[in-house]
Design a protein around this nucleic acid. Structure first.
Lengths: 180, 180
DNA sequence: CGCTTAAAGCAAATTCTTTGTGTTAAGGTC
DNA sequence: GACCTTAACACAAAGAATTTGCTTTAAGCG
């Protein structure tokens, strides 16, 4: 009797997950997302399909998991010295990362998953970090920033053929900073 | 030799499509979207699965088609007498329709389809109709309205557990109307 | 080292998807 | 209206993906 909550994340399990994640990323690089299948991923990862089905349930859940792993930031938002600068820098990078084919597909997969909210949590944390750098300024709430800056960026990526122009992004940031 | 562009939308074809659309809507009402399958729809519609695969390609495309059909407005946006009033009325109704379980799933299906932009086109046309009622006022562009009002509504529906509060919606509309 | 069991492997059963071929009926011509 | 042409559907067999029962491996303890 052991191990809290019956989880076993070490050793082989971790290796298999790593191997599967790599396989997914590699395949998404080489071919259309709609042509990627579970048996294909399994073969590439040197694993049985049933392993994937048992751990993730279905292809959509696996793709969402991989996408979220890639979205997890590996560094703090850049510090430019001003609130507007920090937000601009962060938003521009975000727009850039998500505007690509793979980026858009990542958004789609996360969105279709059971917990799309986790993605917002990550974004919110990043924005919170920025806002917290300026305790003496009147800053907009993170929710407001999400509504006025993140939402338009993501919406256009998901629904529109063309991504937001940087000019328009700056205008939206200015609107968000002109708090009321 | 006849028929422009080899389409044949009349008679049986139309009946089959209608039957399949009804079947989808009925099934989406009764069970989880993720449990709905093509063979199931086919059976309900009194049709062979291959008919569906040949016409739509896959389940996702069919669901998107059905969702778009339901999104197509059956009436003009309400005319309240003022720009703010019209936009509020429209946005509140939109928020309401899309906040439900089925509404959210419709958005997801359309978004995942090959032409999510068509959905924006419908929304844009509705907003354009409203804006055109006030040729003597300085009105925001439709794009701006989409960025500041529609995007947050949709984003929160897709990514957040809780929908936008009506209060916050009004605030966003006010921001959009305070043009610059 | 040995025990327990979560997680992976394997393979059969099931279900979904694709595809080849024949049939039905829309839409046009005379 | 009788008669073509062929798009769209039905049917059935082949192929692929998913599920499931059972076995084997090795992670995490004592």
């Amino acid at each position: 009797m052991a191990i809290k909550e019956g989880l076993r994340p070490g050793g082989r399990s971790a290796r298999v997950q790593e191997s599967i994640h790599s396989a997914v990323n590699a395949l998404l690089q080489e071919q259309e997302r709609s042509t990627v299948t579970v048996p294909q991923i399994a073969a590439r990862a040197g694993v049985t399909p049933s392993t994937i089905y048992r751990r993730w349930g279905d292809l959509a859940a696996l793709l969402a998991d991989v996408a979220l792993a890639r979205m997890r930031p590996d560094s703090e938002p850049a510090n430019t010295g001003s609130l507007r600068g920090d937000i601009r820098a962060w938003a521009e990078q975000y727009l850039d990362e998500m505007s690509s084919e793979v980026g858009r597909n990542m958004m789609r997969d996360v969105q279709a998953s059971a917990t799309p909210g986790y993605c917002v949590a990550i974004i919110g944390a990043q924005l919170q970090t920025i806002v917290d750098r300026y305790p003496n300024e009147k800053t907009p709430s993170v929710d407001r920033l999400i509504d006025l800056v993140v939402a338009p960026v993501v919406f256009r990526i998901l629904f529109s053929a063309t991504a937001l122009e940087v000019d328009e992004l700056h205008r939206l940031i200015d609107i968000a900073l002109r708090l009321d």
